[in-house]
Design a protein around this nucleic acid. Structure first.
Lengths: 197, 197
DNA sequence: AATAAAACTGACTGATTGATCAGTTTTATT
DNA sequence: AATAAAACTGATCAATCAGTCAGTTTTATT
C-alpha cells in the first residue's frame, strides 16, 4: 500500500471516530509513521484530506453494492429488497468507520458550500435509495410487492435502517435485535394490495 | 430572562449548529453581549456548559411531551401512536436546535465517560420509546393494534422517525413528504393479526 | 447610607494546531 | 553512475482558544 493510501486509511478511521475538528494532522501522521508535513505534501489542506476520505468511502460503498448485486441473484423483488436491507446492515457492521463518518454532521455541513462533498454524499445516498427503489419496482412487476410509491417507500425503508444503524453506533439500542421486526414490517408493507398508488 | 439562561440559549443554538469543538466560548459570550470570562463565572468549564445545555434540552423535551399528553385525549392506542409520531415530527421542526444537537455525535461520545451526559440521553430516548410502547400496549388492550412485540416495535418506529428527521436536518430528503407513507405503514403494522408474539 | 455578596470584566497565558518552506533522502530513468 | 523528479522531514510560525485572576460594577440587605 502506498503512503497516500496509508494516510487515507488512517484519516478515515480518525475522522470517523473523533470527527473533523477533533482530529489533528499530527495524529493522522503519527498513525502512518510519518510527520505532519508529509500529509501536506500529499493533500494540500485538511479539508482536501477530508474530501478524499469521503470520496474513497463513496467508492468503497458503490463497489461493495455493485459486487453484491453482481454475484447475488434474487427470485423476486421482495427477496431483493430483503437482501438489500440485510446487506446494508451487514456492511454497517463490517465497515463501521464508513457509517460512523456518514453519521457525523460535518460532511452535511460542508456539503452546503462544497460541491465535491455534496456530490459524494449524493452518490452514496442515491446508491442506497436507487437499489431499494429498483427492488420495489421489480417486486411490483413480478407480483411479490403490492401497490405503493416505490420512491417514497424506498426512502422510508432507508430512514429506518439508517436510524437503526445510528442507534447502534451511538450505543443507544442494538440494531441487530430489531432485524426480525424490520423484515416482518417490510413484508407487511409489501403484502399491501388495497392501497392506491 | 437571566444572564445564565441567556448563555444557555445561545450555547444551545451554537452547539447545535456548529458542534462542540467548533463553538468557542467567545462566540457564545458575544451572542449574549457579554465577555467570555462571564461564562466561566456561571459555568466552570466548556464541558459543564454543554452538559447544562443537554440537561435543559432534556427538560424541554420531557415537558413538551408531558404537556401534549396532558391535554390530548385519544380514542384508542392506534390513534395515540399516530398522534405521538405526528407530535415528534412537529417538535423536530419547531425545536430544530434540540434535534440537531441530538443528531451530532459528540453527546454520545461524551456519554461513554460522563454519567450526567449518559443519563440525560437515556432520559430523552426512554421518554420517546416509552410513549410509543405505551401506545402499542394500550392499542393491543383496546383491539386497535394486533399482536407484536411492543418494545421492539416502539424502537423500530423511533428508528424510522429519527432517521427521517436526520435526513431532513442533513438536507438530504424531506421528512414531511414521507408522512403519509409513514402513517400508512404504521397502520399496516398495527392491523397485523396473524403474527406470533 | 453602609456593607456584603453576587455579577461581571479586561488583560493575560499556556497549549494546540493548520500550514509553510528550505533542505534532505529516496526512487526512477537514462 | 549521473541526473532529475518525487517523496519526505525538521524547524518554525501565526492564529485560535479554554481557562485564570485581580479588580470593578451591580444588586440586595440591613
Amino acid at each position: 500500500m502506498s503512503k497516500k493510501e496509508d494516510i487515507l486509511k488512517a484519516a478515515t478511521l480518525l475522522f470517523a471516530t473523533n470527527g473533523f475538528k477533533d482530529t489533528s494532522m499530527v495524529e493522522v501522521a503519527k498513525m502512518t509513521g510519518a510527520v505532519s508535513a508529509t500529509i501536506f505534501y500529499h493533500f494540500k489542506s485538511k479539508e482536501e484530506l477530508f474530501l478524499s476520505v469521503l470520496g474513497s468511502v463513496k467508492d468503497g460503498i458503490l463497489e461493495e453494492f455493485s459486487h453484491y448485486f453482481g454475484e447475488k441473484k434474487f427470485v423476486n423483488g421482495l427477496e431483493m429488497l430483503e437482501g438489500t436491507v440485510s446487506f446494508y446492515l451487514y456492511l454497517a457492521g463490517n465497515k463501521a468507520e464508513w457509517f460512523l463518518l456518514l453519521h457525523r454532521y460535518y460532511p452535511y455541513k460542508l456539503a452546503k458550500e462544497n460541491d465535491t462533498c455534496r456530490h459524494s454524499l449524493e452518490d452514496i445516498y442515491n446508491c442506497f435509495v436507487d437499489i431499494f427503489e429498483k427492488a420495489l419496482v421489480q417486486g411490483q412487476a413480478d407480483g411479490s410487492i403490492g401497490k405503493l410509491s416505490p420512491r417514497k417507500t424506498a426512502l422510508l425503508i432507508l430512514s429506518t435502517v439508517d436510524g437503526m444503524v445510528r442507534f447502534k453506533n451511538c450505543n443507544l439500542y442494538d440494531a441487530g435485535a430489531l432485524y426480525n421486526e424490520l423484515i416482518s414490517t417490510i413484508r407487511q408493507m409489501a403484502a399491501n394490495k388495497n392501497q392506491k398508488t
